[in-house]
Every structure is written in C-alpha cells, then in structure tokens.
Design a protein around this nucleic acid. Sequence first.
DNA 1: ATCTTTACCAGTCACCTGTATTATGTCACT
DNA 2: AGTGACATAATACAGGTGACTGGTAAAGAT
Lengths: 198, 198
Amino acid sequence: MPKLVDRRERREAIAHALWRVVDRDGWSKATMREVAQEAGVSLGQLQHYFSSRTAMLTFAMEFDAKATSDRIAGSLPTLGGQPHPRQVLRLVLAEMLPLHPEARASSRLNAAYVLEALHDETLRNQAGVGLREGRSMVRELLRQAIADGRIDEDRDLEIETDLILSLTGFTPLLELGVIQPAAALNAIDAHLDRLFTG
Amino acid sequence: MPKLVDRRERREAIAHALWRVVDRDGWSKATMREVAQEAGVSLGQLQHYFSSRTAMLTFAMEFDAKATSDRIAGSLPTLGGQPHPRQVLRLVLAEMLPLHPEARASSRLNAAYVLEALHDETLRNQAGVGLREGRSMVRELLRQAIADGRIDEDRDLEIETDLILSLTGFTPLLELGVIQPAAALNAIDAHLDRLFTG
DNA sequence: ATCTTTACCAGTCACCTGTATTATGTCACT
DNA sequence: AGTGACATAATACAGGTGACTGGTAAAGAT
C-alpha cells in the first residue's frame, strides 16, 4: 500500500475543515465537495475516509465536542489549584458562548446540528446524550458547592442547574449583535453573584 | 381575469404551509415543491405568488412574527385587566419556548432563520431588528416595574433584561428532551420570583 | 515474485434544486 | 365581441448534490 497513513489524523483534519466551512459559510454549504476543497483533498479522498455524509457529520460532532472540552480543560489551570466553582462555571459558559472565534465556530456547528437532529432519530439521541452529560457536569458542580456551603442550601439543585444552562440563550443575541460580549458576561456575573453566598 | 383572488390570503396560506413543513421536516426540506404540495397548490402557482424562494421565506418570517405576537396578545386577557408584569413576562416566555405545538413550530422556524441569517447580510439585519424590538419590549416592561417599586430599584435594568431573554436558552434542552416543560416553567418562576419584590 | 490490502482519483449516475418559459384558461371592462 | 390583465398549470433548464464505479499506484505479506 502507499505510505501508510494515520486515518484518525486525516479524519480530524477533514472534520476541522468542515468546522471552518460551517463557521464561515453555514451548515447548508457544508457539502462533500466544499469540505474536500477546504481540507485540500479530492472528493474521492474524502469519501475514502467517510463513507457517507452522515458519517462525516457524526464524526465532526464528536471531534467538536472533544475540542470544546479540551479548550475548557486547557483553561482551567488559569484559575489556580483549587478554583472556586463560581469561576469554573463562568469559564464553561464563556466557552459555550460565541465570545471568541473558536467558541463561535463550535457554537454554530452545535446549533446547526441540533436543528438537524430534531428531524432525525439517530442524531437526536446522540445530541441528547451530549447535552445530558453537560447538564450532569453542571449539576455535580452545583451539588458540591451546596455541600460545601458556597450556595445557600435551600436552593433547588435542579432549578439552579437549569438556570445556569439557560444562560447559553445569549447565543442568538450575541450572534446578531443585539448585545455585546461584555453585556453577556455582566449578566452571567450578576447571576452567579446571586447564586453563590458571600 | 379569473375569479379575482385575495393575494394576501393566498400568501398567508402558503406561509402557513411552509410553517408546517419546517416544523415537521426541518428547514432544509422547505423547498418550493414541498411547500407547494403542502399548501395544495402547483409549483407554478406558488411561483405566481412568490417570485423567489427568498421572497417566500421573508414573507413567512413576517407572518410568523405576527402570529406569535397575536398569540401573546390573545392570551393577555387571561391575566385580567391590570396584569402583574411578572405574569406578563411568564406568558411571553411560555409563548417563545417550544411548550405547545404552535410555539414549537414558531421556535423551530425562528431558529432556522437565525442560523441562515448569520451568513446573509440582508437576513441578518432583518432578524436583528426583530430581536431588538423584542428586547425593547421586555426592557420597557422591566423599567416600568422598577418605577412602580415592583422590582428592587438597585437592580440593573440592562442586566435584568438580558437575563430574562436568556431564559429562551431552554429551547434546545426542551427540544431534545433533556428537561421537561414543567422544569422549564419552574426555573422561569424561580427566576421571576427572585426578580420581583414581595 | 506474486498477492493482497490500502490510498487515491477522475468520471459518472440519478436525483433534486430554484428559476424561467410557455400555454391555456378565466373573467372584467370597453 | 374582443381585449387585456390575472390565475394556473406543465414543462424545461442549468447547476449542484451524495453516492458509486473502475482504475492506478504503492507497500507490506507470503
């Protein structure tokens, strides 16, 4: 065979190209040919690594989820050794909102994916699992903070979890320029200030 | 000419068909042919009323915006003569979240439209204006409530406005079944309870 | 040296898209 | 009666889509 190639690496390069196309031109422009061109490969080569468009999209979403969690994990050390959960939540939210180029691309990819998932059983389950995992993490963080007395213990865990997640609702406002990034962060800070005691 | 026809009525019937197709099958399936079939008209007839796909989409969005505000206006009397702004906000939010079939269809149409608008200057402006109007209404409601002493006067008007709007972030959680409608309403109530005094 | 597997590519297929064109009614008005 | 604006339909067109084909080349295994 030819110079044996790292399939995983190739696939990730293509997924990254898809990520760029969706960010720049939108989900509907993310065709096999367009992605192939963006990745600098031929259509045939792309099809060699992804047997169908759905397979490519599925892989790209996993790749994107990993990239986002890596970004968060990479920024966590910024907060020091034993970071306050308030700062952790602020960081997570800042990475989920379109506040900088990489987060924006992830946000757009996710939004398009969710929309597509609404009318496709398989995708819906996959997207649902991802969101559920995210919610569980936030919930666990809040549960611990309550146990540690950093949040008033008569706050309802489920409700507070959901309210944190709802802050991602700033996305369309930010994308359309209705509010500025600073305003979103101010609102997030205000909410977190009221949530945590002291 | 033939039986002279109410053009506005025809266009609204088509817009309503588009609305149904997007709700059921997704934005990408909302092609001219599909919408025509759903509306029970021929492709040629659809083209007679909308000279281009963009024109159809633009009209459909205006139609949808009006339908949503009509729904809200229609439910307002439920709250009695001088409704508490807390109840008004609750009602508005309930109509913007996918909590019942009509609101769900509107929500899906809006989401798809925003996504499309990100990469189209004209649409982006149009969508931005709509969102800005919505924000202004919420802001005015809160401003009045502060003036009336129903909200603590040291709350920041802009921040509270944005936090209310962010509650629409429940949409993807609801659509993918991560949370139940009751949970979303509980969270909304908790937020509003803390916002309003007494 | 031959075989088998992997990598890649140009071309083709059937299908679907928005739009444009053409034809044929239908009715009001002069 | 006929003329002209409107309503509706059927069809054609050019472009783009995902998927598939056969073929060529490279390199490890036998």
